[in-house]
Amino acid sequence: MTSVVLEGYGLTKRFGPATALAGVGLAIGRGEAVAIMGPSGSGKSTLLHCLAGIMKPDEGEVRLLGQRVDTMGERERSALRRTRFGFVFQFGQLLPELPADENVALPLMLGGVSRRDAVRRAREWFGPLGLGGMEERRPGELSGGQAQRVAIARALVTRPAVVFADEPTGALDQTTGHDTMRLLVEATRGGDASLVVVTHDPQVARWCDRTVEVRDGRIMTGVGA
């Protein structure tokens, strides 16, 4: 494995009496694409949320390039998510009020980049992702696949270390889903970022370097692609 970018040790997370994660450990290498698979309720999304600093594990550690994430306060984790992570989700990840290019530019603007530069840099992603001419369309005027590609551009525009994708093709038909995954993996690799994909679809997982399977809050296997 190449150098580790993100790793979690002994991650445990409980929701009331239910244990979502029971001492999970996972390491993600630089530029690596990892699929996390498992049935509904297995804990795969919880694992992603813990790794991404969205929620704190009850036990265990998360480190990004050696730096503890799980001990950070909400403000620091927010800053980390804004600058070092990118996100692609199944539902509603675009702001309906903003046109596509401003949706992509928003993370840059939140990081202090001027609007003009942010939009210019955002638009650079539109051509490679097959979105040329759609810069000023609003999310409601895009197809599902186009909206996911805009979300991919937004996830990558800050040049993050890791991109997290939760069921990124869950709302798309098979052909569009494959196209989207191809673009996600290629663009992530092109940006020298790692990719963590949560999915229950083996066809999606096939695009990744390896697959880990989660059941009942535990990692069952680690399979190379």
Binding site: I54, R75, S78, A79, L80, R81, R82, T83, F85, F87, F89, F91, G92, Q93, L95, P96, L106, P107, L110
Partner: peptide, 13 residues
Amino acid sequence: RQTYALLRLAGTP
């Protein structure tokens, strides 16, 4: 709330 939650998720203060 979904929009705000997503913005927070993406690290918006």
